[in-house]
């Protein structure tokens, strides 16, 4: 159950030709999550700055 499923790192990336599909989905998910976190934090920072300027 916890055995590494591939013989080498290269094989894990290639995944018998399916690697391109699997890893592109991984990258898509990570990038979209990260961009949302960064986006919201930037928006909040901007609002806070506005408060401080108006006070």
């Amino acid at each position: 159950m916890f055995d590494f499923a591939f013989n080498s790192i290269g094989e894990a990336i290639y995944m018998n030709g399916h690697g391109i599909y699997v890893w592109s989905v991984v990258i898509l998910v990570l990038i979209s999550l990260l961009s949302f976190f960064i986006g919201y934090n930037l928006k909040i920072k901007k609002l806070k700055k506005k408060f401080n300027e108006s006070n």
Partner: peptide
């Protein structure tokens, strides 16, 4: 765990790993 430490699916092979995302 899912992408690297499970066996491939007997029909779909490695592409099944997209299930985890």
């Amino acid at each position: 765990w899912g992408l690297l430490f499970t066996q491939e699916d007997f029909v779909q092979g490695n592409s099944y790993r997209i299930i985890y995302l």
